[in-house]
Design a protein around this nucleic acid. Structure first.
Lengths: 241, 241, 241, 241
DNA sequence: AATGAATGAGCATTCATTCAT
DNA sequence: TATGAATGAATGCTCATTCAT
C-alpha cells in the first residue's frame, strides 16, 4: 500500500530504524501495562523512549498505531510460543490440556502482557474495525481456530473427548472462556488475592481443570491438567477418593 | 464551627434530587457503554443529561464518582435479580445451573451493562482502592461468595456434584470464569459473530454446559443447562450421531 | 454561636439581622486575613458563617460589599481607638508620638487587621472608586488629616517641632510613611523575623524613633518615643549620648 | 533506560527562546500592574503575548512561575541600578541620601514596577516559601543589608550620623520604612493626589527628608536630600529661616 | 427570613499532532 | 533522521450569583 518510492534510495538505515521502533514499542508496552492504555500520554511515551515527540511521529503517525503494533507483537509472541506447546502431546485431549496450561503459564509469567490485551479488548474492540483485528490475527496466528478445532476433532476421534461436542462451537467456547478467565484475572491483579485469598494461578488452574473434566469422555483416563503452581507441583488440594 | 444545625426539617427536595441523579446516571451509563468510559467527557455527560456542567457538579463532584455510582447500581441490580434466580432449584447443581443461566440471560438482555463492567474491571480495578470495591460488593451482594460456596457444599452433599472439589476454590474459579467469559463476549460484541460466525449466546451457553459437565458427579442425572437461546428452547445443536 | 432559635415571632427582626451580619463579617475578616482577600471564595465564606450561599446574598449582594464593610469596620475601630490615644499628651510632638505609638500597638495587637488593610490597598485601591474610599473615611475618620495637621501646627507653635516644616505636606508624609511601614511589616509577617532577625515591633519602633527625631526642634527636650516592646520598657539597645 | 545522549550540540534556538520569554514577561508585567496579579488570567496573558495558551506553557508551566520571574527581574534591575547610585557619595550620610533618592526616582519613573512589588508582598509573601524569596534576593542583591549596614557604620564613624544608632536595627528599619512608604504611594497611585492634593513625589521626598534629619548627627552640615521633583530642582517649599 | 437548586461564564492546564529547519 | 517550537481544540472543574419556593 505505502509505495516505498520517494527518492531512489535516500540511503536509509533500516537497522537503526528498526532499533528505534523497538525502543518505542518496549517503552510503550511497559507504560500501557503499568497505567492503562488511555492513561498514558504521547509525551510520556516519548520521554520513556528517550526521543523527542516529533521524532516519535517519524515512526508512528498516531498513538493508535503504537497500540496496534504492540497488540501485533503480543499476538505474534503468543502464537509462536503456543505452537511449541503441544509438541509432545499425543491425544487430542492432551493437546487441549497443553494449550490451556500454556495459558496458565502465560498468566503467571506474562501477566502484564495479558493485562494489556484485556484492556485492549475492553476499550478498543468496539471502536476499531474488525478487519484490522482480523488481519492481525491472520498475520500471526497459526495456532488459531484451525488448529484448535483440529484438536477437538482429533480428541473425539481418539476417544479422549466426549462424543457429544460440536467441534466448531466447543472450540470457540473453550478458547473464549479460557481467554476471558485469564484476562479477567490479569486485570484484577493483586485485587484477586486481596479479595478472595486465592492466588491467581490456583484459580486459573482450577478453572481449566473443571473445563477439561467437562470435555473429557466419561471413561477417559485420568490425565488431568497438572496442579503445578508457579512451576512446582502442589499436593492435590482435594481428596480424590 | 459550622453551627450544628439539626436540619430542623431537612427541607430538601429529595424526590427531585433523586430524579436528577437518576437522569444523570442513566445518560452516563448509556454513553459509557456506547463509547467507553474514558472516551466520554464530562461535557458530553452534562449535555446528555440536559444539565449544565455546574449543575452536574452539584450531584457528582468527580467523574469517578459517576462511574462508581453506576457500578454500584449495576451490582445492586444484578444481585437483586440473581437472588430470585435460584428460587426453584432443588439440588446444589441445579442452583449452580440456575445461576449460570441467569448470567446467560444477563448477557443477552443487558449486554451493554455487562460491557460496562468489563471496561470497569479492565481499566480501573488496578487504580482504585480495593476497599471501595469491596464496600460496594458488601453493600449490594447478598448472592456473593457465601451463597455460592454454599451451593457447592450442598451439591457435594446431595451427590449432584463430584466429590473431589474444594468448595472455596471451585466456587471462586467458576464464578470468575463465568464472569470473565461473559464480559469478554460482551466486550467483543458484534465482533464475535463477525469473527467466528457464532452468536454470543450460543458461545456462552456452550461454555456453561462444559463447566457444568465438569462439575457434575459422574453418575449424576442428565440435568444439563438448557439450550434455550434468547428465551426459546433450541433443538440441540449437536446430536453427534 | 449556633443560634438556638426555632421561630420566635414572625415579624421582621432588625436585631437578628444585625447579628447575622456580624457573624458574616467576623467569619469573612478571619478568612480574608488568613488566606488573602481574593483567595477566599463565597462558598468558604458561607460555610464559615454557617449560612447558605443564598442566605448570604440577603445580607450582602456582592462579595465586594463584604470587603468594603470590613474595611469600614476596621477604619471605624481604628479611628475610635486612636482618638483616645492623644488624650493626655501636652505638646504637639507628644501628640504625634502618641499617635505613632498607637500604631505600633496596633501592629502588635491587631496584626491581622493591619495585614488585611495592606492587601486591600495593594489590590483594590486602583480599581475602586475614590469616592467610595473617601466616603468611608469621612464616615469614620475623626482623627484624619484635620486633626493631624493640627498637631503639627501646634508643635511648631509650642516649639516642640522644628520650624521649617510644611504642616500639610509633613503631616501627610508622616502619616503615609507610618502606615506604609506598618502595613509592610504586617504583610511580611513572620518572614520579617526569619529574614532579618529583628522583631516586627522593634523595627517599627525604631522607625518612629527616627521619624520623631527628624521632626523635633533641634533644642527640643528628650521626649523620645518609648522603647517599649509589646508593652514592656526595654533597656535602650543603643548607646545614647 | 532513556539513552544517556550527551546532547551532541545543544541544538536549541536559545536566542529565539529568550526573546519569547521576554515577550511574555513584558506583557505579563504590564497586565499585572494594570489590573492586579490575581485579576489577570492566563488567557489574557497569552493573548497579550500574542501566543497560544499551549505555547505559553512551554515557557512557564504555572502562573506563579511567571510572577516569580518578574519579581526576579525587578529585583535584579533594582539592584543593578541602585549599586550605581552611591558612586559619588562621600560620607555615610551622603550614601544613605543617595540611596533614598534613588528610591524616589524609582517611584517616579518605575511606578508600575513598584506597584507590582507592593502587590506581590501584600498578596503572596505569606503563602510562598521564604526560601524562594531569599534565594531570589541572594541572586540579585548586591546592595542588600550588608552594603547598607556598612553605610550606617561609616556614617557613624565619619560623624555624619548620630552616634546613638544601632547599625543593624536602624538599617533595617530605614530600609523597610522607605520601601513601605514607596510601595504604598505606588499602590494608591493617582488616588494619592486626588485624596490629598500632594504629588506622590513630593510626599516621598518629604518623608526621606524627615528620616534623614532623624539620622543626622546634631551638628552635621546641611546636606539635606535635594528637593528635586522629577529631575528638576524645586525651590524650597518652605522658607528655612 | 431562609434555602435548595440551577447556571453562565470562565479558569488553568493538557495533549496529540504539525511544521520548519 | 532528528528535533525545537508551535498550536487548536479540548478537558475537568470552579465560582459568584440568581431564582423559585
Amino acid at each position: 500500500m505505502a509505495s516505498k518510492k520517494r527518492k531512489p534510495p535516500p540511503r536509509t538505515y533500516p537497522a537503526h530504524r528498526e532499533r528505534q521502533r523497538k525502543r518505542i514499542l518496549d517503552a510503550a508496552e511497559k507504560l500501557f501495562v503499568e497505567r492503562g492504555i488511555d492513561r498514558v500520554t504521547m509525551a510520556e511515551l516519548t520521554a520513556a523512549s528517550g526521543l523527542q515527540p516529533s521524532t516519535m511521529y517519524q515512526y508512528f503517525s498516531k498513538k493508535d498505531d503504537i497500540v496496534w503494533a504492540i497488540v501485533g507483537n503480543i499476538m505474534a509472541r503468543v502464537s509462536a510460543r503456543s505452537s511449541e506447546a503441544d509438541a509432545s502431546a499425543k491425544s487430542g485431549l492432551d493437546k487441549i490440556i497443553a494449550f490451556l496450561e500454556y495459558m496458565a503459564e502465560e498468566l503467571s509469567n506474562q501477566r502484564a502482557q495479558v493485562r494489556f490485551m484485556a484492556q485492549f479488548d475492553a476499550m478498543y474492540s468496539h471502536d476499531w474495525p474488525v478487519e484490522r483485528r482480523l488481519s492481525l490475527e491472520a498475520e500471526s496466528n497459526n495456532m488459531g481456530s484451525e488448529v484448535f478445532r483440529e484438536m477437538i476433532r482429533e480428541g473425539m476421534a481418539d476417544g479422549s473427548l466426549r462424543s457429544d461436542l460440536d467441534p466448531d462451537l466447543t472450540m470457540q467456547a473453550i478458547v473464549n472462556a479460557a481467554i476471558g478467565t485469564q484476562r479477567r484475572l490479569a486485570s484484577l491483579g493483586n485485587k484477586v488475592e486481596l479479595e478472595y485469598g486465592q492466588s491467581i494461578d490456583r484459580l486459573f488452574r482450577e478453572t481449566i481443570r473443571v473445563i477439561v473434566l467437562g470435555l473429557r469422555a466419561t471413561g477417559s483416563p485420568q490425565n488431568e491438567p497438572s496442579k503445578r503452581v508457579k512451576g512446582r507441583k502442589v499436593t492435590p488440594a482435594r481428596r480424590t477418593k
